[in-house]
Design a binder for these strands. Structure first.
Length: 957
DNA sequence: GAGTTTGAAACT
DNA sequence: CAGTTTCAAACTC
């Protein structure tokens, strides 16, 4: 068919142009999943894998529809992934704790289901894949390949795996890799296993049953679901899709229409993945999935998460679920789809910890402590996961996030961590929302550590819901949107009283929510926005909102619609491709190869592009302030928002004066920075010049506000218009302040950068980036550094300001700050940071970066290096505020509000002054500790906090 | 909807 | 690294 021809063309092109190395193999087997996968996997150095989420994607293709599989390798995990990771993370721990694990898994499943199975499956698969990869990677590169090639567990598998693995077989993950191929046929057995596992779990944990009861799901239903799953499991290989569909069908309530609609192909992939994986460990997984699905479905049904966030079947439980699941699911749906391909890289980390019990205990405890009965149940699941990690082992904690990278956890408990697919970043950016997820995840993780802060906020979950609503508003800026989504997610997570639970939830939710995006259109919109950075940014504006909506209406996917005619959607010219998402039917592109069918080609191409520019797929706009803006506005009216965010590379506008969407900075709703080479910059969000003044001044501002304030005022005036829109959003956010913690997810979008940075610290991609950020660190480390620095600073600050810390950690930089000051929910930053570090690195970093970044920046600013950073983040200055209230004031474009700021400022100022001082001191220490080298490592070495930062740092874009 | 403008991406 | 070309989005009419 024409496709074939296309493929041929594509292959040729691919071969010819960009991806000479892989091309042949990849090209050869683009459609043929296996070959490419194997190739990718085997050779894949972790590095490569990490680098391109595409690989995972390829793997997915191999699975046919398992983008997820591919994802594992992806360096840049999409935010989504992170969430998943977290979820997976959580799951495993849950596994250790049957009830909790199950719950978490179920949640994930539910999410998947909600996604419409497919999407969820994709996202999940990705996650799962990531997890698998993680295990595999840890185990063997080949295994990874297998995963990729084989159907790395579908998303469901993901979840299921965790569950089953934990409960049933810890070794499954290992087996899975080997089994993948074999397992497929075993699917049936897998189902049985799942049942068994379920039963076992149930046995082990009376709670599960009870939970079911609580959930409202009747045992019978559950059993039925299991049966269905089992039946489905047989889908094994080819049938996978059908099976998935079936599953979906099985999970009637669960299925989310959108998801299904979105990416059948992807879903299929996932499905296949799941099937394949299921076959091996996958079987268990599937069974788990099925069981989980059942459970989830049960829960979901009650919660109706999967189906749609909107669907809140049961009121209370539903709410909790809704908050989590719905969002997640919806999110995931949209995000995943898009990101799936790239996301494939996602790392799934199923942490099976022998000590899982401990976690489980914690989780259980969390349950009791936090969640109300039913909701608790779910929460408990979430909680379990996080709890386990936290409790379990900081190591594990970190591992979970990193597990993908290092299978340590696997040891005792196989923990599969979905690696963040750096590439997924696009998604992140897109998803950004997803990204949010990352951040969220990271935050969550951190939360786990310090999560306490989060806990207090189950209400947050509610908020999250609102967020979803708000999201629409948030659409304002894609970046912002992302952040918002993240925040929402975060909020959700946080919402749960029990920190661990909250964290776990957040993880699960994140993973889920992003995907699910809720059926809620809003979420979708967000996703869309997230998807297309440009568009997002565009949409970011109020105007964009409408557009987004329209696009959203299309599908969550549409966020980006390309019209490529010559590039076949395999170049960065293509917004879809650049965003790490597949082109949708709504696209008007011609001869599009950016489709699941051509995953291999896509992955290869991506790899090639990434080879040239590791940050090519990183979000163009580093969102730091978006959410914060809202916060800032809320708090002190410090509306530095726009300023906080920056364009990765900076624009080069000469005629548009940065006042049109031609300008990427403008598109991204971010101010121009020193990195920009624009001429006659009049960027409403912040002029390059201004940014400098700001940044520097700002840096000083903390120390001496007056100058900054003045500049800010001027800027604010300009920004006010644009900001007002945001502000509008903000108000809601204000209400959401609680949510702020959630905001961290927003950061998720950054994650991509992380990944890239991690793997590709190369400054090439982002000279400006490096410059601004790198300067501070001295090393070219990308944003990671920033993240590192920021985080460290943040932490440092946090140490000073316990309250502040939490918020910052929790929420994106700015908001967090503002909110942080107010909310400062959690004081456990320190703990948080340490834990987060690993995880963050993968993807979640972003959040960290934001927070820490800004603050840190300030601190740094005090130092020479830091100062530069500040500049980059100038707008971020506002962020700085977060670190120090003062900074916030300064940074906020809406200085009027901010600067006066009022109490907030004062508070900040007072606290900040002290905090800053203290932070500085810390920084001084920390900085030295930070070798300019890799942010992550450095940060780690320097401080735990720094480590957390590092995670964030990994995100560097 | 067609044509132009714009700036990023890709290429040399 | 700089310059040029190509490309697709953004914009205008």
């Amino acid at each position: 068919m024409p496709k074939v021809n296309f493929k041929g063309r594509i292959r040729f092109r691919v071969m010819d142009s960009p991806e000479s190395t892989k091309p042949t193999t990849t090209i050869a087997a683009p459609t043929s999943s296996l070959d490419p996968v194997a190739v990718q996997d085997s050779p894949i150095s972790s590095y490569i894998c990490n680098l391109s989420p595409l690989k995972p994607v390829k793997a997915a293709p191999v699975a046919q529809s398992f983008p997820g599989l591919n994802s594992p390798p992806l360096v840049f995990s999409s935010p989504r992934i992170h969430p998943h990771r977290q979820s997976s993370f959580l799951k495993r721990p849950q596994c250790t704790q049957p009830s909790g694990s199950e719950l978490s898994q179920q949640d994930d499943r539910a999410i998947n289901i909600a996604k419409g199975v497919d999407e969820s499956g994709k996202s999940d698969t990705k996650l799962s894949c990531g997890l698998i990869f993680g295990t595999e990677e840890g185990d063997n590169s080949s295994s990874v390949d297998d995963q990729c090639g084989s159907p790395p567990g579908c998303v469901d598998e993901f979840l299921a795996d965790h569950m089953e693995v934990d409960c049933v077989e810890l070794n499954h993950s290992e087996n899975l890799t080997s089994k993948q191929s074999d397992n497929v046929p075993k699917s049936s057995s897998g189902v049985a296993d799942s049942r068994d596992s379920i039963t076992e779990v149930e046995k082990k944990y009376d709670v599960t049953k009870d939970d079911r009861m609580t959930l409202g799901a009747s045992p019978a239903i559950f059993d039925q679901a299991v049966e269905k799953c089992q039946e489905k499991s047989p889908f094994d290989t080819a049938p996978g899709k059908a099976e998935k569909e079936n599953e979906v069908g099985d999970m009637p309530s669960i299925v989310c229409p959108k998801v299904e609609h979105h990416d059948h192909a992807l879903d299929k992939h996932y499905y296949e993945h799941s099937a394949t994986e299921d076959a091996g460990a996958g079987h268990k997984v599937e069974s788990d999935c099925s069981s989980q699905l059942l459970l989830e479905s049960m829960q979901i049904v009650e919660y109706k998460d999967c189906v749609q966030a909107t669907r809140a079947l049961s009121s209370e439980p539903v709410e909790n679920l809704m908050l989590r699941d719905p969002k997640a699911s919806p999110h995931h749906c949209g995000m995943r789809r898009r990101c799936l391909q790239f996301e494939g890289a996602q790392q799934n980390t199923t942490v099976n910890s022998p000590g899982s019990w401990i976690p489980s205990n914690s989780t259980t405890s969390s349950r009791s402590s936090v969640i109300p009965a039913n909701s608790e149940f779910l929460e408990s699941y979430y909680v379990d996961v996080p709890a386990t990690p936290a409790n379990m082992q900081l190591d594990n904690m970190t591992q979970p996030t990193f597990l993908a990278f290092s299978p340590r956890n696997d040891g005792t408990c196989s923990s599969k961590v979905s690696k963040p697919s750096g590439i997924g970043l696009h998604l992140n950016s897109i998803v950004n929302a997803m990204p949010a997820g990352f951040g969220a995840i990271a935050s969550i993780k951190s939360a786990e550590r310090g999560y306490l802060s989060v806990r207090g906020k189950k209400s947050v979950s509610m908020i999250n819901r609102h967020r979803s609503e708000n999201l629409e508003n948030c659409l304002i800026s894609s970046n912002v949107v992302e952040s918002t989504t993240g925040s929402k997610e975060d909020g959700r997570h946080e919402s749960h009283p029990s920190v661990a639970a909250s964290t776990a939830r957040s993880l699960s939710h994140y993973s889920v929510q992003p995907l699910t995006n809720d059926v809620l259109l809003k979420p979708i919109e967000q996703q869309a926005t997230a998807c297309g950075d440009k568009r997002k940014s565009n949409s970011g504006h109020a105007d964009s909102l409408e557009e987004k909506k329209s696009s959203v209406t299309n599908d969550g996917d549409d966020c980006k619609r390309c019209n490529c005619k010559k590039t076949k959607c395999l170049k960065l010219y293509c917004d879809c491709f650049a965003a790490g998402i597949y082109c949708a039917e709504t696209c008007a592109c011609q001869e599009c190869f950016n489709r699941p069918e051509y995953e291999d080609t896509v992955l290869e191409t991506r790899e090639q592009i990434e080879t040239r520019n590791p940050l090519a797929f990183a979000p163009k706009v580093i969102q730091r302030n978006t959410e914060p803006q809202a916060n800032s506005t809320v708090e002190g009216g410090i509306i530095s928002t726009p300023s906080s965010a920056r364009h990765k590379r900076g624009c080069n506008c000469k005629k548009s004066m940065c006042l049109k969407k031609y300008c990427e900075c403008y598109q991204g709703n971010v101010g121009c920075s020193d990195g920009c080479r624009c001429e006659g910059c009049k960027n409403v969000y912040g002029r390059k010049e201004d940014s400098r003044l700001f940044t520097k001044k700002f840096a000083f501002s903390e120390y001496g506000m007056s100058k900054d304030v003045v500049n800010k005022q001027a800027i604010d005036e300009r920004l006010d218009a644009s900001y007002e829109e945001r502000l509008d959003m903000v108000p809601s956010e204000k209400g959401l302040l609680h949510i702020e913690p959630c905001n961290p997810r927003d950061l998720t979008p950054l994650t991509p950068s992380f990944q890239s940075s991690k793997y590709h610290p190369s400054p090439e991609s982002d000279p400006t980036f490096l410059e601004s950020y790198g300067k501070s660190f001295g090393s070219p480390l990308n944003s990671d550094n920033h993240g590192m620095t920021l985080e460290t600073g943040h932490r440092m600050v946090l140490s000073n300001h316990s309250s502040m810390d939490i918020p910052s950690l929790m929420s994106p930089m700015t908001r967090d700050w503002s909110n942080g000051s107010g909310a400062q929910l959690v004081p456990g930053s320190g703990h948080f940071s340490s834990v987060s570090s690993l995880q963050w690195r993968n993807s979640p970093v972003t959040p960290m970066t934001r927070f820490g970044g800004t603050k840190f920046v300030q601190v740094l600013d005090s130092d020479d290096n830091l100062h530069d950073i500040m500049e980059d983040d100038t707008p971020e200055i506002l962020k700085d505020v977060s670190t120090s209230p003062n900074t916030v004031k300064v940074s906020s474009p809406n200085k009027k509000r901010v600067s006066p700021p009022k109490g907030g400022l004062h508070e900040l100022g007072s606290s900040s002054s002290a905090g800053l001082r203290t932070s500085r001191k810390f920084i001084l220490q920390a900085v030295p500790s930070f070798p300019p080298l890799t942010p992550c490592l450095d940060s780690k070495s320097s401080d735990i906090q720094s480590t957390s930062d590092l995670q964030g740092c990994s995100s560097p874009k």
